[in-house]
Computed example of a mutant assay.
Amino acid sequence: MDATNTHLSPETEAMREMVLAFARRDLAGSGGFDPGEFRRRWRLAGEQGLTGGTVPDKYGGSGLDAVAAAALMEAFGEGCADTGFAFSVAAHLFACLMPIVEFGTDGQKERWLPGLCSGERIAAHGITEPEAGSDAMNLRTRAEHRDDHYVLNGGKCFTTNAPVADVFIVQAATRAGGGFFGLTAFVVEAGTPGLRVGRPYDKTGLRGSPTADVYFDDCAVPADCVLGGEGAGASVFTSSMKWERTCLFGVYLGVMKRVVDDTIAFAGEREQFGTAIGGFQAVSHRVVDMLLRLESARLMLYKAARGLSRGDDDEIAPALAKIAVSEAAVRIGLDAVQLRGAAGVLEGGAAALLRDALPARIFSGTNEIQKNNVARALGLGRRRPAPRS
């Protein structure tokens, strides 16, 4: 299948091809997690600009807009067989670095961004808690302001990159029951007394992405590590999720393309009853459906990316893109496995896509929450004013 994206500039297309070749050559990995190997590949990704792509160049990034970033992540996902590693890089960039870019002071940007862009340091974003997943406005992690610092107490779960992180973006409640304005975002250095990281999870999918719980026990954080000011945590989180729900899911577009291309080749080579199975209508129609899902999801994601690049205040496009890509990834994974028969459940691209796609319907806000967000943006469920007599 032709990989050309006609909506991309020649410069972006050239960057995409370079990243694709680099990822195929240097970032494959084993699909599991080894700390030393993870760090080695992370530094290589940093040298290629993957870990800081959307950060302004004055802070060590490449200054890419959302469309170019989505293309970068799509090439990354297509070329890197370890989707977990690609996911970790994307989460670092969009959920951690972009909040510093958009809400940090000049001093905070100069302090943290260069090392995080270069690949020397790794960031993790902590918001999810055992009793606050979809209900992100009701966190139990507390931050108490004392003199020139804040004291954090509580814990986070399912924190991507936590086992290897040098820097944590942490959301905590500074005003109990304060709702949208009750949360505050902090940048917390690894090794800060009172911060502890649990054991890495053993996950079904995204195995190459290290994930763990993070605990805070009277963890003192300087006041100059507050991101965006006290009470701005929800705004920080909402902005980062627009980037994540759009650009991060470019990784899945790339993985889906790799599996669809491989499935087309398989259907043309695998013979049963004296003919290639691609000649059977049941097979060919399933392959066409796989391609339709991929191309439809791609259109949705790049529409959201163009809006994000323009600075649109749009909740609908990123939410729809997240739903479209994640659901397409699961369906394509199922079809790819089914078309391969028993070989589909063995280790390989089809089985890996299916495993790695399952979490995509959950992280960055579940698909059910995305539908709630779209419905709210459409005004559904609001009581309309009674007509005037």
Results as ranks from 00 to 15, higher is better:
1 M>H: 14
8 L>N: 04
8 L>E: 04
8 L>C: 07
10 P>S: 04
11 E>D: 11
11 E>N: 06
12 T>K: 02
12 T>E: 08
13 E>F: 09
21 A>S: 14
31 G>I: 02
36 G>Y: 01
39 R>H: 08
41 R>V: 00
41 R>H: 01
41 R>L: 00
46 G>D: 01
48 Q>P: 07
49 G>A: 05
49 G>H: 05
51 T>P: 12
53 G>H: 09
54 T>F: 08
60 G>F: 08
61 G>W: 13
65 D>N: 14
71 A>C: 07
74 E>S: 11
75 A>F: 03
82 D>K: 04
85 F>Q: 00
86 A>T: 01
86 A>V: 03
94 F>M: 11
98 M>G: 00
104 G>R: 00
112 W>Q: 01
117 C>T: 06
123 A>T: 06
131 E>A: 12
131 E>L: 11
135 D>C: 13
136 A>W: 15
140 R>N: 09
148 D>K: 13
152 L>N: 05
158 F>Q: 06
159 T>K: 03
162 A>L: 00
163 P>M: 02
168 F>V: 04
170 V>D: 00
175 R>W: 03
182 G>V: 01
185 A>I: 03
188 V>Y: 13
191 G>I: 07
195 L>T: 13
196 R>C: 11
201 Y>E: 05
203 K>F: 08
206 L>I: 04
206 L>C: 00
212 A>V: 05
214 V>L: 09
226 V>S: 01
228 G>P: 02
232 A>V: 01
233 G>M: 03
237 F>A: 05
238 T>E: 12
240 S>T: 00
249 F>L: 08
258 R>V: 01
277 I>M: 12
278 G>D: 04
279 G>R: 15
292 L>S: 08
292 L>C: 07
293 R>C: 09
294 L>D: 04
295 E>H: 11
300 M>P: 06
308 L>Y: 05
316 I>V: 15
316 I>L: 11
317 A>K: 12
317 A>E: 14
319 A>S: 13
322 K>T: 07
322 K>R: 08
332 I>D: 05
338 Q>L: 15
338 Q>Y: 15
339 L>R: 06
344 G>P: 00
345 V>L: 04
348 G>H: 05
358 L>G: 00
366 T>G: 15
367 N>L: 14
368 E>W: 11
371 K>R: 14
375 A>L: 12
378 L>K: 09
384 R>V: 14
384 R>T: 15
385 P>V: 07
386 A>Y: 08
